[in-house]
Simulated scan of single mutants.
Amino acid sequence: MPSPPRIFSPHRRRMTRQRMLRLQTGVDAPRYLVDDMVDDVIERLGFLRHAPARALVVGDHTGALAAHLRGHGARVEEREPADGFDEEVPYPLGSFDLIASLGTLDTVNDLPGALIHIRQSLAAGGLAIVSFISSGSLPALRAAMLVADGDRPAPRLHPAVDVRAGGELLQRTGFADPVIDQRPLRVGFRGMDRLIADLRALGLANVLADPGPPLGKGARERARQAFAAAGEEGRTVETFEILTLSGWRR
């Protein structure tokens, strides 16, 4: 079987998440993405009336989902890619009734393999819920980067999975009763620099294996102006599209 293409740098990915964890210690650190994902998982579990006895939570640096699950009697293990947890190799952790992966699988090179490892680590009747940023995200920033680069655009923002590809992935990797949905989370910013700071604190900085050259001073200013022009009254609304894939092991 051929190796998957190397789109993302595992080293840059790990360093980016380590920086994210440092930045998240701040009182005003942005947590809106992971908070949204945690709330969504809790709502889904309630709707499905799925009460796991043993769960694995990957990527929730707030600890909120694990705390909720423990409050309902579950034994929970937590793992973080910044600490070396590799989602592209078989999980050595045993069988789980729930595996929730929040905001990490959009930057693995072997996404089908990672989903297979999740399914294989579920017990019979176990549920996987996987959420990450998907196609259609950051349209204002993408447009601003194109303006900044002019006729020679550089790779600056990640390629992303869309709803259709997400559904195909769940089917290919053997999940039963797959459910795929996408929801927007819109956030207003007073400037591009504020957005960039949030992206770093959210662990969404560039981890491409070939990230392209840095923006020069003039290009950065063109990007700032284009981003501001996309807004109204000094605020530009940016969109984060959150894709959630869920399925069962039968």
Score class of each variant (00 low, 15 high):
Ile99Leu: 15
Thr25Ala: 12
Arg152Ala: 12
Arg250Lys: 11
Val207Asn: 04
Asp39Ala: 15
Ala51Arg: 10
Asp40Asn: 05
Leu98Cys: 10
Ser3Gly: 04
Tyr32Gln: 02
Pro90Lys: 14
Arg119Gln: 06
Trp248Phe: 15
Ala201Asp: 12
Gly46Met: 10
Thr236Val: 07
Pro178Gly: 08
Thr25Tyr: 02
Gly167Ile: 13
Ser9Leu: 08
Gly166Lys: 08
Ile116Ala: 06
Arg183Gln: 12
Gly234Cys: 11
Asp162Met: 07
Ile99Tyr: 05
Gly216Arg: 08
Pro153Tyr: 12
Pro211Leu: 14
Asp210Val: 09
Leu170Thr: 01
Arg222Lys: 13
Ser3Met: 13
Leu245Asn: 06
Arg142Cys: 05
Ile7Asp: 02
Leu23Ile: 05
Arg119Tyr: 14
Arg250Leu: 12
Arg54Asn: 04
Arg14Asn: 02
Ala51Gly: 04
Pro52His: 09
Gly167Phe: 11
Gly218Pro: 00
Ala160Val: 02
Ile129Cys: 02
Ser137Thr: 03
Ser9Trp: 14
Leu141Met: 15
Gln18Gly: 03
Ala124His: 09
Glu238Ala: 11
Arg142Ile: 04
Ala228Asp: 14
Glu78Asn: 01
Asp39Lys: 05
Leu33Thr: 03
Val57Gly: 08
Arg31Phe: 08
Ala229Met: 10
Gly71Ala: 11
Ala128Lys: 02
Phe189Met: 06
Gly166Trp: 09
Pro90Arg: 13
Ala201Pro: 06
Asp198Ala: 13
Val57Cys: 10
Pro178Asp: 14
Arg152Ile: 03
Arg190Thr: 14
Gly26Phe: 07
Leu102Asp: 10
Leu185Val: 13
Gln225Lys: 13
Glu241Pro: 00
Glu233Pro: 00
Ala176Leu: 07
Glu80Leu: 14
Ala82Gln: 13
Ala176Gly: 10
Ala228Leu: 09
Pro30Gln: 10
Asp35Ser: 13
Glu168Pro: 00
Arg249Leu: 06
Ser134Ala: 15
Pro178His: 13
Asp36Arg: 10
Val130Arg: 06
Pro178Glu: 15
Leu122Lys: 03
Met192His: 02
Glu232Trp: 00
Arg19Cys: 04
Val89Phe: 01
Asp181Gln: 10
Ala128His: 05
Pro155Glu: 14
Gln18Ala: 13
Leu169Val: 09
Tyr32Gly: 00
Leu199Phe: 09
